[in-house]
Design a binder for these strands. Structure first.
Lengths: 247, 247
DNA sequence: TTAGGCGAGTCGTCCGACGACTCACCCGGC
DNA sequence: GCCGGGTGAGTCGTCGGACGACTCGCCTAA
C-alpha cells in the first residue's frame, strides 16, 4: 500500500460516505496530510488522480471541492486520450459511436421540436455550401451535437462529443476519394434530418448508423490492411454497407 | 500556462509525435524536468494525469513507459469513479449499458460458438440455484462478460465491465421486492441465452435490452421520486416495460 | 554454467520554503 | 448608509534537496 493509495482511499472514503457532499470543500491540504499520515506531495498526487477523473476540482487559492459527479463531466476527461489513440482503437470507438448515436437519433426523432428540425436542415444547407474544411468540421459537430442533446441523455451527448473531438477523421476529405466521401456525407445528413423531421425513430436510427458506418468504412480503408479487404469482413449484422458509397 | 500543463503538453507531444512508441520507455524524470523546465513535483503530477488516463505506465525503480494505448485499458480507469456516482448518474449509465449490451448481444448471437451457448446456459443454471448474493453477482458478471467478449469489441466489453463493477445494483435484491426481481432476472438470462442459442440477433438484442431495462426500472423506483411515477414517463421508444415485472 | 550478491539507475516519499491566487474583512470616500 | 478598493490571512502551485525502496544488468564465486 503506497502513500498515494492511502491518500486516494481516504479522499474517496470521504466522498463515498457522504462526509463531503457534492459542491462542498475539503479541509486544506495540510490538514488532510496529517489525517491520512502522508506528505503533501503524495496527497497532491492522489488529488490529481481524482481531479483527472472529474471527481474533485482543485481551485488555486481557494481549496479542493467535490464536483457535481455528473457522468457527462467525468467522461469529458477522456478527450486528452482520444487524440493519442491509434487507428485500430479509433475504429472500436466508432462502432460505439455508431450504436449510441443511432440510439440518440431515434430518441431525438421521437421528441423533436420544430426548432430542432429547422436547425438541422439549416446546418445541412451550410455544410453543403461550405468550402473550408475547418468550417465543415465545426458544422458537422454542431449537427450531431444538436441531435445528441435532443436525445435526452447528457452522458451520451458528452461521450459523443469526446469521440468526435478528434476532428481528424475529416482528413479523409483530403484523400483521393474526397469527392464521393463529401457527397455521401451530405446525403447522410439530409437523410437523418429528414427522418427526424418525419418523427420516425426507426428511420433516424438507421440513417445515423449508416452515416457513421460510412466514416468507419473510409477510415478502415486507411489501415495498413494486413490481409483482407475490410469490405469482405463485415464486423456484425448491423454493419450495413453505406449505400451509394461503395466502389 | 501552469508548470504542470507544460509538462503534460510535453509528454503528450512526445507520444503524439511518435517519438516514444507504445511500450517504449521515457527518459528518466530528472532529464524530462530539465527538458520541460519544470520541477520534479510538477512533472510527476503530469505523469500521474497520464497514468490515470491509461496513456502511460510508471514502474517503480524502472521508469515510465507508454502503454499500448488500447481503448479497453483506457476505459478501465473509470471504475474508480463509477461507485461514487449518485443514482441519477447511474441511470444515465444504465441507458448506455442497455444500448451497448443489446448491440453486443446481437453480435454475439450472430457468431456464437456452441461452447458459448453451453456456458451461458450453465451460468443461468447456477444463478437460479445460487443462494449467496455475492455468488449471484459474480455469476451475473460472468454471464454478461461472456456475451460482451463474444461481441468482438474489447472496448465495449471493458466499458460494460466498468459499468457493471458497481455490483451495488444487487442491493435491490435485499429490498421488499426481492423475489419478483430475482425471478424476472433469471427469466431474462434464460431469454438471452436462448436467443443466442438460436443465433437470432434481433431476439438477443431485444432480450438484453429488456433485461437491462428491468434493472433501470427497479433502480429508478429507489429514487426520491420528485414528481411522477417513472413508469408514466418512459425515456424513449426503446424503453420497453419489462414484461411480467410491472406491478 | 549458474546462483547469488552487488551497485548504479530510477521511482516513491518526505520536508521546508516561497510565490500566486482567492476571498472575506476592513476602511475610507461618496 | 452605501460602495469601492486595499489588505491580510488562508490556500494552492511550484521549487529544490534529500533519502529510502525497488529494478535490473553485471560480476563474482561456487
Amino acid at each position: 500500500m503506497t502513500a498515494t493509495d492511502a491518500a486516494l482511499g481516504g479522499l474517496r472514503a470521504m466522498i463515498a460516505s457522504g462526509d463531503i457532499a457534492p459542491g462542498q470543500r475539503f479541509p486544506p491540504e495540510a490538514e488532510l496530510c496529517v489525517r491520512f499520515g502522508v506528505s503533501r506531495s503524495s496527497l497532491r498526487e492522489a488529488a490529481r488522480i481524482l481531479s483527472t477523473l472529474g471527481v474533485v476540482e482543485v481551485r488555486h487559492g481557494s481549496g479542493m471541492y467535490v464536483s457535481r459527479l455528473d457522468p457527462a463531466d467525468v467522461v469529458r476527461g477522456f478527450s486528452l486520450t482520444v487524440d493519442l489513440l491509434p487507428l485500430e482503437g479509433l475504429l472500436q470507438l466508432l462502432e460505439i459511436r455508431r450504436v449510441l448515436e443511432s440510439h440518440a437519433s431515434a430518441q431525438a426523432a421521437a421528441r423533436a421540436s420544430d426548432e430542432l428540425v429547422t436547425r438541422l436542415h439549416a446546418l445541412a444547407d451550410r455544410m453543403e455550401a461550405a468550402v473550408d474544411l475547418d468550417e465543415l468540421g465545426r458544422l458537422d459537430r454542431a449537427f450531431h451535437e444538436a441531435i445528441c442533446d435532443a436525445g435526452g441523455n447528457p452522458t451520451v451527448s458528452s461521450l459523443m462529443e469526446v469521440f468526435r473531438s478528434r476532428g481528424g477523421h475529416y482528413r479523409i476529405m483530403t484523400s483521393d476519394h474526397a469527392d464521393p466521401v463529401r457527397r455521401a456525407s451530405d446525403a447522410g445528413h439530409r437523410a437523418i434530418a429528414a427522418a427526424i423531421g418525419r418523427r420516425d425513430p426507426a428511420a433516424a436510427a438507421t440513417a445515423a448508423a449508416a452515416h457513421v458506418a460510412q466514416t468507419e468504412y473510409w477510415l478502415s480503408r486507411m489501415k495498413p490492411a494486413p490481409d483482407a479487404d475490410p469490405v469482405a469482413a463485415p464486423r456484425g449484422p448491423e454493419r450495413s454497407d453505406p449505400a451509394g458509397v461503395s466502389p
